[in-house]
Computed example of a mutant assay.
Amino acid sequence: MGGMTTAAQLMAFCGVVGLGAMSPGPDLAVVVRRSAVRGRAEGMAAATGVATGVFLWAVAAAAGVAALVATVPVVLTTIRYVGAAYLAYLGIRALLAAIRPPETGPGAVPGSTGGAFRDGLLCNALNPKAAVFFLALLPQFLPAHPGTLETLTLSLLAVAVTLLWFYTVANLVAVFRRVFDRSGVRRALDGLSGAALLGLGARLAFVRS
């Protein structure tokens, strides 16, 4: 699409990115679990990690790097399997937390906003579907030869929309943290989120879109 991006096109871009962020997936699972088990700060740190991954993929798509990822089978396959392995690791960790005694469970172990940020970042950055999403989306809203300003504007808009959604999720879930602090509820949440992350990892590894 040639020329400058109009306000209507920017709104449309934000809408598509928002729908992508809202779709159920590993990003949402990680933010919800961190918010419920560890609290608002870690939920927002995980959300920031996800948004950082979005920024990296958006810039990579605009720079042509995502096209390489999406078209070279070995690169795409490597990212896919590493991402699946990381999701499996997070899932197993959550399942182990569900079966530990309360005194050694997640409630007794100090959390880490840095670890939450890392989980959010890696979940997004190691998801090849994010590369394909931005590779398909960005060219529709950028001129044929985009400059730094156009690329940076769309990338930051993608980050802002992602942060808005996941910060909202983190804060809403954190409101009910007292409920999640109950041992039985926390075990159930860890078990469900662990199973969900394992399922998402298996889907990423074995189901080709």
Rank of each mutant, 00 (worst) to 15 (best):
1 M>N: 08
8 A>N: 02
8 A>I: 06
9 Q>E: 11
10 L>P: 03
10 L>Q: 08
12 A>E: 11
14 C>T: 05
14 C>S: 09
14 C>V: 10
16 V>Q: 11
17 V>R: 02
18 G>S: 06
21 A>F: 00
23 S>A: 10
23 S>E: 05
23 S>M: 09
24 P>H: 04
26 P>A: 09
29 A>S: 04
30 V>D: 00
32 V>R: 01
38 R>D: 09
42 E>R: 02
45 A>R: 07
46 A>P: 09
47 A>G: 09
49 G>Y: 02
52 T>A: 14
52 T>N: 05
54 V>P: 08
56 L>F: 13
59 V>L: 14
63 A>Y: 13
67 A>D: 13
68 L>M: 12
70 A>M: 15
70 A>K: 10
71 T>Q: 15
71 T>D: 15
71 T>K: 14
72 V>I: 15
74 V>G: 12
76 L>S: 15
79 I>S: 12
80 R>D: 15
82 V>N: 07
84 A>C: 07
84 A>I: 05
85 A>C: 04
88 A>D: 00
92 I>R: 04
93 R>P: 01
94 A>G: 00
94 A>Y: 03
95 L>G: 00
100 R>P: 02
103 E>R: 07
104 T>R: 10
105 G>Q: 01
109 V>L: 05
109 V>A: 06
110 P>Y: 05
113 T>N: 05
115 G>A: 10
115 G>D: 10
118 R>M: 14
119 D>I: 01
122 L>Q: 11
123 C>D: 03
124 N>T: 14
128 P>A: 14
132 V>P: 14
132 V>G: 11
134 F>M: 09
135 L>R: 08
137 L>N: 13
138 L>C: 13
138 L>P: 10
140 Q>K: 11
142 L>V: 13
142 L>F: 11
144 A>T: 15
144 A>P: 13
147 G>F: 11
150 E>C: 06
153 T>E: 13
154 L>Q: 10
156 L>S: 11
158 A>I: 13
159 V>G: 08
160 A>H: 06
162 T>S: 14
162 T>E: 07
163 L>V: 14
163 L>A: 12
164 L>W: 13
165 W>V: 08
168 T>N: 04
170 A>W: 06
174 A>Q: 09
178 R>I: 07
179 V>Q: 13
182 R>G: 12
185 V>R: 05
188 A>S: 12
188 A>R: 11
189 L>H: 01
192 L>D: 01
194 G>I: 05
194 G>N: 03
194 G>E: 03
197 L>I: 01
200 L>G: 08
205 A>L: 12
